[in-house]
């Protein structure tokens, strides 16, 4: 008699974006393409930026997350967190205003009930209007967190963000912030995780997630997670290492530091769609001999879904209204 096969793990992807150029300006994308072209040219390949752009843009045609929902189903991902970085202040070719972007994300929440959460981001330089929009997103749209994007030109501990963190404390929602490099269209100056330290200290009831902590400033991220009770990291962008090392070694390192109560699964979809799909990324992380192999069953659950569930559990935000026919 065959042994019963183990149930597939519950997985939440805590780091995704809507795959469309509506929310992400072309200047941001062109910067990422320039890096790809540089790498190919160095290998002696006469790469055309136009062709690479065409390939990349083919993967950004999913404004309502129907493709993402299908990829999630195929990969066994129960829920994904959609992040809305606000590029509108820093990059003037962003097609939508941040309010329009928020409304589009609300549309996705209603279209796919129970499949997504949204963390809305507002550049703090938008002043009182931005604060009002963010609070509206929590009270009316059912968003469940704040997305902060320091490469747009501000520290995560800038005082202009404190009203946002106060709202996060009041509504009990987490903050997910980008750390480390990004598109060359933006600055990397304010992306060191230690720049979060003052905010994490001032707002001890707010939980902060350092995005890409498995690949960027890994030591600093691990230190912050070890020593600040309210700081976490997500492993998204581990895929950037798969061309050189298909084993996902960086994930193994992240979960070998005694901080597995702070490590959160994420894929940064659609950024790495040229490197694979959700199913392949989940397989890389969860395979039997993969980076989570040495973890206890509880630790695996923490990383794959329980840590992010815990951060979202006590949110005092609206429930997205169901769409009516």
């Amino acid at each position: 008699m065959d042994a019963p096969s183990a149930a597939p793990p519950t997985i939440i992807d805590a780091h995704c974006h809507i795959a469309t150029t509506e929310h992400t300006p072309r200047s941001f994308i062109d910067g990422a393409i320039a890096n790809m072209v540089t790498a190919l040219v160095a290998q002696g390949v006469r790469a055309s930026p136009k062709m690479i752009a065409s390939m990349y843009l083919q993967k950004l045609q999913d404004p309502l997350c129907d493709e993402l929902a299908a990829d999630m189903a195929e990969a066994g991902i129960a829920k994904s967190v959609l992040l809305v970085p606000d590029f509108t202040y820093a990059l003037k070719d962003t097609p939508l205003t941040i309010e329009e972007s928020f409304l589009k994300h609300r549309e996705v929440l209603l279209r796919h009930p129970g499949k997504f959460e949204v963390f809305g981001g507002v550049d703090p330089r938008w002043g009182a209007d931005g604060i009002a929009l963010f609070e509206r997103s929590l009270k009316e749209f059912g968003f469940r967190g704040l997305k902060v994007y320091p490469p747009c030109g501000f520290s995560p501990s800038h005082p202009d963000l404190f009203p946002y963190y106060e709202l996060c404390a009041h509504y009990r929602v987490p903050v997910l912030l980008h750390i480390g490099p990004t598109s060359p269209a933006l600055s990397f100056e304010t992306t060191n995780p230690f720049m979060l330290d003052e905010a994490a200290r001032r707002f001890p009831t707010v939980n902060f997630i350092l995005a890409h902590g498995s690949v960027s400033f890994t030591e600093e991220c691990a230190m912050m997670c070890s020593h600040r009770p309210n700081v976490y990291l997500d492993i998204s962008a581990f895929q950037s290492t798969l061309r050189a090392d298909g084993s996902g070694k960086v994930v193994k390192t992240a979960v070998s530091r005694g901080i597995n109560h702070k490590v959160i699964f994420g894929t940064d979809w659609p950024v790495f769609r040229l490197q694979g799909n959700q199913q392949s990324f989940v397989a890389t992380v969860t395979r039997e001999d993969g980076p989570l192999a040495d973890l206890t069953p509880l630790e695996r659950e923490l990383v794959l879904h329980k840590n992010i569930e815990r951060l979202l559990a006590n949110a005092r935000t609206a429930v997205p209204e169901r769409a009516t026919a």
Partner: peptide, 12 residues
């Protein structure tokens, strides 16, 4: 282990 970028390189 050949991703889309690897395929693009092949085409070029």
């Amino acid at each position: 282990g050949i991703d889309s970028l690897g395929i693009a390189a092949l085409v070029f």
